[in-house]
Every structure is written in C-alpha cells, then in structure tokens.
Design a binder for these strands. Sequence first.
DNA 1: GATTTTGTTTCATCTGATGAAACTTAGTTT
DNA 2: AAACTAAGTTTCATCAGATGAAACAAAATC
Lengths: 243, 243
Amino acid sequence: MEENKHTVRAVERALDILLCFTESKELSLTEISHQVSLNKSTVYRLLASLEGKGFLIRDKMTDKYRLGFRLWELSANLVRDDDPAILFLPEMERIRDLIGETISLYVRDGLERIRIQAVEGNQAIRRVAPIGVRMPLTVGASSKVLVAFSEEIDLNDFKWPETVDQQKYTEQLKRIREAGFATSAEEREQGTAAIAAPVFNRHGKVICALCVSGPVSRLTIDKMLEIAPLVMDSAKRMGRIAR
Amino acid sequence: MEENKHTVRAVERALDILLCFTESKELSLTEISHQVSLNKSTVYRLLASLEGKGFLIRDKMTDKYRLGFRLWELSANLVRDDDPAILFLPEMERIRDLIGETISLYVRDGLERIRIQAVEGNQAIRRVAPIGVRMPLTVGASSKVLVAFSEEIDLNDFKWPETVDQQKYTEQLKRIREAGFATSAEEREQGTAAIAAPVFNRHGKVICALCVSGPVSRLTIDKMLEIAPLVMDSAKRMGRIAR
DNA sequence: GATTTTGTTTCATCTGATGAAACTTAGTTT
DNA sequence: AAACTAAGTTTCATCAGATGAAACAAAATC
C-alpha cells in the first residue's frame, strides 16, 4: 500500500478533483469537497488554482464548476497522427455497416482498459458506448484480448472476481492466442455479448482491441463465430494503417 | 501583480507542466524542468503525481512523457450536448464546400480566444488551422466579433498592441454591431485575411464566432463582402442548432 | 574505460498547505 | 422583517510535507 513514493500530495488532490468531472459535468464546491472528502477551504484553494490555469471554469450564475478550455488545448494535442482513435474511425464505420452492431476500440492502461473510440450500431436496440469509460481488465472479450496478447502483464497483479477460475483462465488465454479472437457473453454486463480481436502494430505489439458488442439475443455464439473472420480482418487492416 | 491569492503553488506548477504538452507532444524530465524553470527533483515529483493519476504516461523506451489517457476521459466529458465543436461540424463543412476556404470556430475565454473547431479549405493553398490554439482578443476578425457582441468586456483590461487606436477601434466595433460581421486583413498574420460572424444562442448571447479565413490574394475585400451574407446566414443556422 | 548526461533518491530546512473557525453573502423559513 | 440555513470566502496558528542541493545510479556518448 506504499504507492505514495515521491509524489506531491496537493497535486494528486487537485487531479482527483478534476477526475470528479468524469462523472458529473457540473459540481459545486461543497459537492466536490464531499466527493474527495477534503476540507472545504482546501478544496477552495485547489479549485482556485485549477480555475486560474483554465482547467476549470465556474458558472457565473450558479457558482458551479465545469471543465475549462485548457482541456481543449490538451485533448487537441492528445490527438496525434498515430492516434488509433481517429485513424481507425473510417474502418470502424465500415465494419459497423457490415455487421450492424456497436464497434468499440479499447486500449490498455495499467490494469484497466479504456474505450477510446466507438461507433454505435444502426439498429434500434443497440449497445450504447460512451467514449473514455474505464473498465477492469479481468472481464469482457476485449480484456481477454488485451491480456492474451500483451507479454508484460502479470496475472497476479489483478484482483480477480470470484467468478473467475485462474487455472481455466490461463488455458482460455492460450486458446485465444491460437484463435486470434476472444468472445464473451454477459461477463461484465447483463444481456450483452461481445467479440474482440487484437490490433497489432508493425512490430507485432498489441496497440488496442477491436470489439463488436450487442445484445446476446442477436450476438449468439454462432453469430460471433460467423463474423469472427470479419472482425479479425478489420483488426488487421487497422494494424496496417497504424504506424 | 498579486494574483496568487488563495491558490496552491504545487498545483499550479503541475498544471504548467501539463500545459507544456500543448507545444510538444513528448518531453523528457530535463526538458520540462527547463521549460518551467524548476528544480529537477521538484519536477520529478510533480511528474510522478501526474503519471500516477494517469494524466501523463511515459514511454518505456525513451523515458519521455506524453499526455495520458485520463485526458481522454475528461475531454470526452468536455463534449457536451450543447457543445458547439461537434454540433456545428456539419454546418461548417457545408459552408466550407460552398466557399472553399478554411472555416474556424472561436470561443472567448477571458481575454483570449480559442479555436475549438476547424475544417480546412479544399484548395491547394489554404489556411491550416490547428484546434485548441489560443490567440489574443485584440486582433483578427473573430476577436472583433467576440468583443463587439459581448457586453461584459472591459476594453481597458486588454494590453493593446501599439498599432491599435482605441478611439477608432470603438467606432469600428459599433459598425460591426450594425453590419453583423467583421473582417480583417493581415492583422494578426501576414498574408491572411478573414471574415467572421457571431453565433448567438436563444437568449441572444454570443456563444462563438464563425470565421472564414484564407490568403489575402483570394479573400479580397470585394470577395468578403460577397460572401458576408453566406457567413452570417450560416452563423444564424448554427444559432438555431444550439441550445 | 573515462566522461557526460539523465533519471532517481536522500536529507535538512523552512515554505506554504492545511483544517478549524470566523466571517460574509444569499437564499429560505418563520 | 427577523431568524435561520446553506453556501462561499478569509484568517490564522500549526506543522506536514514540498523544496533545492547534493549525492547516487544508470545509460549513453566519447
């Protein structure tokens, strides 16, 4: 539990405050100080700094805070040439039109995965997929892909849910590596199934997982096996586009 | 000069570090410590906090830092329903195809303006317009629009460049309010001309400025007067889309 | 192998971050 | 209108913890 080596407390607190805004887009001083459980005045000063630098702005009327324009600047810089999120969008739309289900792109960040891009299916009942969401790396088709094809992951680092049998899981990973794709049905979310394939860069490293997800009623095992070649092919195309 | 009231030093320094990444996308510890002129070890600790919270990631090979995935999360939340940046994109593309020049969208942030969205012209010689860039509110067509139609701006707050005659400027603003658009030729940038119109929300407040910019050779005064109705019409459409 | 550069850790010093409490609005209730 | 409540703001004494210098380690370069 000794993670706090050589870091700056105040900064971490300020960043925690910023992260509150991933859940609600508008927060008041008191709300924030509750959420991060810090003294009102401490939060007040941190907010003043964040606002002063343009990371937060506060509504003149309600006095509530929201994310500021400086984040535009940064997020604009986040979008790089080799950024899968925009680079792969056309390909994602192509496969979406082909399959009709929601397509997501996940990258691994430590022991989590993040949906960095998504195009929603065109059917009435479809998986909605907000961008930027974090999920555990322990469950879901994309997780399995990201884990299976990354060398540098130590399975012991995870906090495994009880439903997962480590022994079986390791075998499953092996099969995924052989097959080149992973599936899941109602692992993380009731009623949802998914199939995912790894996207490799030139050097053979996984950069992200391409994932097709939809209701279990439509994405049956048979259906997933049917579209598996499509998904893997699409992931391969993406790999060629990437730097 | 007493701006530092009730703020947290360490946090401001950390945010300054983050802002370094608007200029270069990859920076080393030493580079950063030079840029913010702080001691190596101080920067080291701040970086550790920023990295720990996922705002920065460091390349395993080069040890250099770049923006982290947490910013995805935040910037995803920055995109709100009433966000002009994506909402207006289709309309911006429409007018771009009509006029053929680069279209930008600027919002005011304090005494500056920020390009929050842009679609580039389709001609060989065209204005390139990176998103997220900040510019002074004192020069340029968009600035004049944003100033002319915001009540709450005190002209005395600005640091005016010597080239601007305050007396004349005030008269100019009046004419802009009457005409409903502003133009500029080589005010901020050699060889570039622009015409801008305000986008109002339902309540009659300016939310941003729509700007057409291109080389002075093509965007002559005559040409700008010719397209002025188009630009104003487009800005009006945007206003109707906005909340 | 010597030298330089860059990242990491230690440490004594004292800045400046902190929570409690007082103060100030502003909004609500009686 | 006064009393009350809830929200933001400021003050202040205390001491946690942020700081720069310097030592150390590890690469990279000569």
